Amino acid sequence: MSSPLSREDVAHLASLARISLTDTELDRLGAELPAILDHVAAVQSVVESAGGDVAPMSHPVPVTNVFRVDEVRAGLTPEAALAGAPASEEQRFLVPKILGEE
């Protein structure tokens, strides 16, 4: 594991990320960030050792499109769509007026 980062290093990284940290957070992250960087380095070494054999991916499991084929089908007629409406007018749902509309 790498040595802890200095408080100034952590403060500089926080300013680059536009994150404000308290003094306690600066001290805690100074000890935690090297472990995080070691893990990133381990992942990077695996990627480099794989060479060009492994294709980049966004998911560990293949993702496929689950949508059905877009087919034209008969839809409702205006009369059928409005059949259950309490009131309709000119092939539209009729609703009470609101906000003093005329």
Rank of each mutant, 00 (worst) to 15 (best):
P96G: 02
R68C: 05
G75E: 01
E79V: 04
R73S: 01
E71C: 00
P62L: 02
V46T: 12
E48N: 12
S49M: 09
F93N: 07
D53V: 04
E79Y: 08
E89Y: 12
T77H: 04
F67H: 15
Q91M: 03
F67I: 10
F67W: 15
V46I: 11
A87P: 02
S45I: 04
R68E: 14
V61S: 06
L94A: 15
G51T: 10
G51R: 04
R92K: 10
F67N: 15
E90G: 10
A74I: 00
V43I: 13
V66Q: 14
A85R: 03
Q44K: 10
A42H: 07
E89W: 09
L94W: 12
A55N: 06
T77I: 00
P56H: 08
R73T: 03
V66S: 15
G84V: 03
V95F: 12
T64S: 13
V66Y: 14
P78W: 03
P86V: 03
A41N: 13
V66E: 15
D70F: 11
V66N: 14
A42V: 03
A55H: 11
R73A: 03
R92Q: 12
A74Q: 03
T77N: 04
A81I: 00
A41T: 13
E71Y: 05
E79I: 02
T64V: 13
A81V: 00
S58R: 11
R68H: 13
V63P: 00
